[in-house]
Amino acid sequence: MTGRTKTMLAALALAAGIAALVLVPLLLNRYGLYILSMWAIMSIAAIGLNLTLGYAGQVSLAQGAFVGIGAYAAAIITTQGWPLVAALVVAVALCFVIGWLLGYPALRVQHHYLAFVTLAFSTLAYLVFRNEEWLTKGIYGITGVPRPTLFGWPLAAPLRFYYFCLAALGIVFAGAWWLVRSPWGRAFMALRENPMRAMSLGVDTRRYTLMAFAIGSSLGGVAGVLYAPLVEFIDPTPFTLGLSLNLLMMVIVGGSGFLFGPLLGALISVLLPEWLRFSEGLYLIVYALFVMILLAWSPTGILGIVDRYLARRRARAASAARSAAMPEALP
């Protein structure tokens, strides 16, 4: 295959995927649309975590907390009569700053120590959601979170709100694509693979680490801002450590460090419980088994398998081309 046909094929696959995401929901009922909207929202949060973890190599068990911060910001601000855009600005700014600060421990500790630090933050955020009743209404939660209007166009209907989430996902995905291909993306990967060497080549690892946390966290906030009007009721329960772990799973199962990884991981995480609903309580066991087998086989997730397959095929094609080019050199 030439590079040209490969690009064509990739573009075709992408177009087919987008068409499916736009057209299939026309056939779905309310609940199906809710599930797909949830997928789009979780994908946004997972894309953020993929930047921090998959590209920059910084473990975080706090992404769920940032979704919570975004959701509470949206719930509090929009129930006061402000538009969702205002909540978006506040949530992104807040999560960016808090994410930046959370990056500081990463300058001193790595791997499982960093996981513990971010886990502690996650717990702290949950306690704030539950106990600061003057702000969050505590365990009673905030009811009646309104769905937004876009330029005077109400988005309350499930299908419209789904398209709204899908458009947001499209923008976030394009932004991540743009970032990963920029010099920053390259510096993030250098940070992941060899921080000491990166530093010796002039990469200010400290600033890039903080940026990776800040950007990834603010995308968690964006997801939260969409989550609140989707479920229309916000209380602390969804934002326990479980959500952070779930987001981590999405990134790892899909393939961390691959742009499409979080989308795939989120799809599995959101759809699998639906498919396995007949199995009742067995769902978690099946999911856990699936994750364990997958990671034992391919630590880089599903897209890691695809990537290795393509690399092998490329190598075989290259060696075939070489031996075809110099047949007399063979014994």
């Binding site: 390259r186 510096a187 990967m189 693979e193 060899n194 060497r197």
Partner: peptide, 20 residues
């Protein structure tokens, strides 16, 4: 040895120059 294994040879070199 200290190269970035997941980056291509070209990307390794561009990275080595970009921060300047």
């Amino acid at each position: 040895l200290q190269v970035f294994p997941q980056l291509t040879v070209r990307e390794n070199l561009i990275l080595a120059g970009q921060e300047h």
